[in-house]
């Protein structure tokens, strides 16, 4: 579904991604782990072109999205992103945050979009917040709304960029709960996280990145119980 070929990314002289090659199948749950500065987030952001790759190709549903002629906005409608800092539209209510893209981009009627949004809000237990503004919500609530905002576009893929890293510890659970529920829906999910328990529970594949390269890739129990490389062993020993 997504295939990455010879992906390179430089920030100035800083070589951040060094020739990444990877294939992701439809419905797979991929978790990317690794130390800070290893290129995890940059890799994720290259997938929907928030960062433009310096060279290499990315194919999505058989379309080369790195081709300048491809319509990046159409692609992003099918491949949303959930951010570490939530990035809810500060000038819109919760309901409007969720319905803005379906109404403007998918031309769905306002009534229908709001009905679907309310259904999604019920699933994450936030239906009573529909008229609140983002600044009135807790971090965990904001992140659950951000996930609902992505779901409202019916995407094929959701990219999660450290979705729980900015949360108080007691709020991490509520967001991971929602993500676990999502993982049972058949969506393709690619998630950068430091929550190893969560990775172990939902991931089909775990990727360990270090210094701009994919160092190890395997099923979660193999990665966590039988790490091959020295770098992964030392990384796991520090965080577990």
């Amino acid at each position: 579904m997504i295939s990455v070929k010879n992906l390179q990314k430089y920030f100035g002289k800083n070589h951040v991604l060094k020739n990444i090659n990877y294939e992701i199948k439809n419905g797979e749950k991929i978790v990317i782990i690794g130390p800070s500065g290893s290129g995890k987030s940059t890799f994720l952001r290259c997938l929907n072109l928030l960062e433009v790759p310096t060279s290499g190709q990315i194919w999505f549903d058989g379309v080369e999205i790195t081709d300048p002629k491809s319509d990046v906005n159409k692609i992003r409608q099918k491949m949303n992103m959930v951010f570490q800092h939530f990035n809810l539209y500060a000038n819109h209510t919760v309901l409007s945050n969720i319905t803005l893209a379906p109404i403007k981009l998918k031309k769905i009627s306002k009534e229908q979009a709001e009905e679907e949004a309310m259904n999604l809000l019920k699933r994450v237990g936030l239906q009573d917040k529909s008229n609140a503004y983002p600044s009135q919500l807790s971090g965990g609530q904001k992140q659950r709304i951000a996930i609902v905002r992505s779901l409202a576009m019916n995407p094929e893929v959701i990219l999660f960029d450290e979705p729980t890293s900015a949360l108080d510890p007691e709020m991490v659970g509520e967001v991971l709960g929602v993500m676990e529920e999502l993982s049972e829906m058949g969506l393709t999910m690619i998630c950068v996280t430091h929550e190893m328990g969560f990775a172990n529970k939902i991931a089909d594949k775990v990727i360990f990145m270090d210094d701009g390269c994919i160092v190890e890739e395997n099923e979660p129990n193999e990665i966590f119980s039988n790490p091959q490389s020295e770098r992964l062993q030392s990384f796991l020993s520090k965080i577990l």
Partner: peptide, 15 residues
């Protein structure tokens, strides 16, 4: 305005 607002809009598919 926080740059994240632009990224959030763009990543939803807005121009």
């Amino acid at each position: 305005v926080d740059n994240g607002q632009m990224e959030a809009g763009r990543s939803m598919g807005f121009t």
